[in-house]
Design a protein around this nucleic acid. Structure first.
Lengths: 355, 355
DNA sequence: CTGAAAGCGCTTACAG
DNA sequence: CTGAAAGCGCTTACAG
């Protein structure tokens, strides 16, 4: 059933049918009703391919995420997912420009923002690092009426099309449960956190969720201590941990509410402290290494590839097909252990295919 | 960059460029080389939309999966995933016919097979229940050179395009680990299995994987006993379990290597035996109910929606774009607990969108 | 308010 | 071996 068929049945031209389908002005009510009736009768759905081709409109999407050095880094994955989506939608006349900034470098973030505003894209997908700078960027986007999608890091702002990321509180609660499985009663647990971090909110929420798991009566015996770092790096981690663990020999479990558990694991292995139980976030290659040796017991993964993929894909569907996404897409809370470290994400249909 | 642009640059017609792109005969080597050079220079990629539209070819895919009664059943999910894919690909001129059979009714399976062969589709996606009947079906498909994709249940046959499903051995091993987390040393564990089941292979592999986890030196104290059912149903489960658990009061953990853990959970709750630890497969609604009450400790999920989605999508990509999938797509081994029961799968970009 | 015609980019008989 | 033309289904100026 094509527009032509409908037109013939209604004794009008294809152009008129098209006007009715898209509710464009310039059709008499009488004709409109007649055509609509036939459309409904046949349950007409227009051919999206032909439609897209005829529209001729080109769309530009900008993606802004942290720079990554190798495929072992967290942000490699969202970038990969975005790449899959970009590839899928390019036939539809969508060109996606990718911008990267350095995670510790506000200037690089703002430079990328300026470039994006200069590009004046039809939509923006980004990770809201640097709280106040992100808010300004959002202000500029809203002013220009450019729709935007947030991935990975939420920010209490209005007007984003959707947010795609993990529920941090639930993730933290999950971490609490997992750590508890390997601890005996009355264990002492250390929570490790860095002072120099951009997404305080997510870290705080994870810790709140973590503590909430132990608030039930079952785990009254546990005690907790927070250990602060200036930043996560091999040397600094070692220095602080040496002091703390020396001072407090009864620490049996460590919770790292960020993706930096591998630094801790490296330290534990070097000091033969593998019996300390360790739970962290994000199953990137750096962390997986220590999951496999058993020094990290559990990782909680959020399928970052999917975040990149969906960010771009949902923006595309909004721009071309006016499909408005839900306000929030909760990423997976995947539990990763030695046993499923090869199988903790669904294999994506779009990858791994040779032409 | 379009075919027209290339044609102009090469001083030939668009038709000739098209012939070169598709390596169709009837172009002199000289012209071919000239055009190819220009194509390479511009890194030409043809517009898939326009191409699909012009081809005019229609494709038919047949899907064959078990019938399901409600959205609480396992097979509801693959069907839903398939529906998403069907919707995505219909613009490309692909019509997918869905056939359902009753899991305990060989006749219904063979009737559907006959209908599919009568339809003579371009590709078939199916779950290989009923071993020998499936082999016959595969023989018929091969004879007609109809490509086919297996989902959920693998079968040692040759010639399938790909298999999409969980690695049963690894899944079982994961179950072993999870059950062990909640058991004390020297625990006695029961493995429950039904005699009346179609995919013996997967169940056997899960049990092998399960046992392999305990074969390490760490768990020498555990002992295991297999309990057989004629089939899983509320009454039969209760009857057998009553006898077994009565006779052997020291059973502390139960492993159900199928999706039927909810029957066991129901029994345990009715007899106030919730302290027995329980691990099963597949996070469909029936099972999730008892995960939430805590009677089931862990479920291992395989993202069945993705299996349906990918089965159809990969067949589509093969038929239209000649993309040959990998021989196997390992489904996820998702660990589901009370804490992540809302978040154990990636939200699919394609669903939940209002037009 | 409505229709005829041209065009999106690619493919395919057909003619030469 | 090669080109001109028609067509896939939809959209859009343009003319009336």
């Amino acid at each position: 059933m094509t527009i032509k068929d409908i037109a013939k049945e209604a004794n009008v031209s294809a152009g008129t049918v098209d006007r009715v389908i898209h509710d464009r002005p310039g059709v008499s009510n009488r004709t409109k009703a007649k055509i609509q009736k036939i459309l409904d009768k046949h349950n007409f759905e227009r051919n999206v391919l032909a439609s897209t081709l005829a529209y001729k409109r080109k769309y530009t999407i900008a993606l802004l995420i942290p720079y990554f050095c190798s495929d072992r880094d967290f942000w490699y994955e969202p970038n990969k997912g975005a790449g899959l989506a970009i590839n899928e939608i390019k036939s539809y006349g969508v060109v996606t420009h990718r911008f990267y900034f350095k995670m510790q470098d506000l200037e690089s973030f703002e430079k990328a923002q300026a470039q994006i505003l200069a590009l004046n894209p039809d939509g923006v997908v980004f990770a809201a690092f640097f709280y106040s700078s992100s808010l300004e960027f959002i202000g500029a986007l809203k002013h220009r009426k450019i729709p935007f999608v947030l991935i990975n890091i939420d920010i209490e702002s209005q007007g984003n099309l959707t947010f795609i990321g993990q529920d941090s509180f639930q993730g933290g609660k999950m971490a609490g449960k997992l750590l508890s499985l390997n601890l005996t009663k009355n264990a002492q647990v250390a929570i490790l956190r860095s002072r120099n971090v951009n997404n305080h909110n997510a870290i705080d929420a994870r810790i709140k969720g973590f503590m909430s798991f132990f608030s039930g009566s079952k785990h009254l015996g546990f005690s907790f201590t927070e250990i602060y770092f200036d930043e996560f790096s091999k040397e600094k981690t070692a220095k602080v941990l040496l002091g703390e663990l020396e001072q407090n020999k009864s620490i049996q479990g460590i919770f790292v509410p960020s993706s930096m558990a591998f630094h801790v694991a490296e330290f534990l292995e070097e000091h033969n402290l593998e019996e300390i139980r360790l739970v962290g976030f994000d199953a990137h290659v750096n962390n997986l290494k220590y999951l496999k040796t058993g020094t990290i017991d559990f990782l909680i993964d959020q399928d970052p590839m999917e975040q990149g993929y969906m960010g771009v894909k949902l923006m595309f569907e909004f721009l071309l097909f006016k499909k408005r996404p839900r306000k929030i897409y909760n990423s997976a809370i995947n539990i990763v252990t030695k046993e499923n470290s090869e199988f903790f994400r669904s294999p994506k249909a779009v990858e791994g295919i040779e032409v």
